[in-house]
Write a protein that binds this DNA or RNA. Structure first.
Lengths: 210, 210
DNA sequence: TAGATTGTTAATCGATTAACAATC
DNA sequence: TAGATTGTTAATCGATTAACAATC
């Protein structure tokens, strides 16, 4: 099974397009339609599906419901995913209550910080002292954590998470964190995203200026 | 000049590594060191540099200061980048005050919403009615906008931005928005990022379980 | 000079796409 | 059946890497 990050990202996008198409009343879908919706080729769609042994009907295309279910299974959405957040600044609190996560079966079960002023033990999604993270992670069998602390403390936080047994980290701190064989780290770097956009906009303006 | 998105992203990462190395007291740097810092090969580093005619010294490597300056010029960081935000929910307000942007010479000059309760005309970074966006964009010569509205209104918002003359959009709404020849749209999809992580963590756990 | 590192070319690797036989 | 779409293979494309001559 030859997968890569881009392929899995496309799977997510197919899924979200499928929900939309379903809500529009579609029951079956062809690789061509899905390709249009996600802006890839239909070859790409069929290739991605074949990697995961998703098969359709040689003239009737794919049943949307089956497709959604299969993709959800592949993406591990058949069970509720419990996630913790470390760092309750502005970005951290925004993500704590981000409606898109709940909708996708992803539940932020707790957040952690070192600032006592931020602690909220009795909220539905509590904010707890960072030192309680290891115990919480073990007791609740948490696998995934989101880092929204400043770059300067991100590396320390990762160490704590690793030793607590976290297996996956989504890092928003603007510093390249390294995973190891036991833990996957994905970095989302907002400055880099914006810088990238700025670059291509400048290219656009220059080439149009001619 | 053969560039692509990944190449430009690496440039951003080189830059941030260089600032760190500089603060550590380094003055010169070899492609090997930078490769380690960003987790790529040294061939990759030299190749990326050669694309932009960045040259070093055949035995002394690259001068950090020169390198930073050249990368900043390429990325358009030689001038202040003015950016607007559309959608002042939790995520929008978090990004409005995100310290990483200011640090990088990116200034959020205003935010827009349709909810009158959110308007703040007198703040340093004002929150204005969405209908004032076109005028504001033209008067202040804004090129870049960030979308943090719900998926359902994202497409409408894009239309408004396009006709106002925005050239680049960073979209956080969980829906694939399309650009056109006059406008570059980059999508940051937080659910997709997290789903991706969940997938690879599950793979990790399964393979380790053996 | 000898040694180390760049800059660049050619080789490799991997992902995307085109094409088409199979078949519903 | 005829026509349309899948599933898969082979071709293409593009990005990464290895290797090494040039040279500081």
């Amino acid at each position: 099974m030859k997968t890569n990050k881009l392929c899995i990202m496309r799977l997510s996008k197919y899924k979200s397009a499928l929900y939309r198409l379903k809500s529009l009343g579609f029951v079956r879908i062809f690789s061509d339609n899905l390709a249009d919706a996600v802006e890839v080729t239909s070859s790409q769609v069929r290739k991605d599906f074949s990697i995961f042994d998703i098969s359709g009907n040689k003239r009737g295309g794919y049943k949307i419901d089956e497709l959604i279910e299969k993709i959800n299974t592949i993406l591990g959405k058949d069970e509720l995913q419990k996630v913790v957040i470390i760092g309750v600044g502005k970005l951290g609190s925004a993500l704590m209550h981000y409606p898109g996560f709940e909708k996708e079966g992803i539940k932020i079960v707790a957040a952690f910080d070192i600032d006592a002023l931020k602690f909220k033990h009795k909220e539905k999604t509590p904010v707890l002292p960072l030192e309680e993270l290891p115990e919480f992670v073990r007791k609740n069998n948490i696998k995934i954590g989101i880092i929204t602390v400043p770059a300067t403390s991100a590396q320390q936080v990762v160490e704590i998470m690793l030793s607590a047994g976290i297996k996956g980290v989504l890092n928003f701190a603007p510093i390249q964190l390294r995973g190891n064989d036991d833990c996957q780290i994905n970095n989302v770097n907002l400055e880099v995203e914006l810088e990238n956009l700025i670059y291509f906009v400048n290219v656009l303006i220059k080439t149009k200026g001619k």
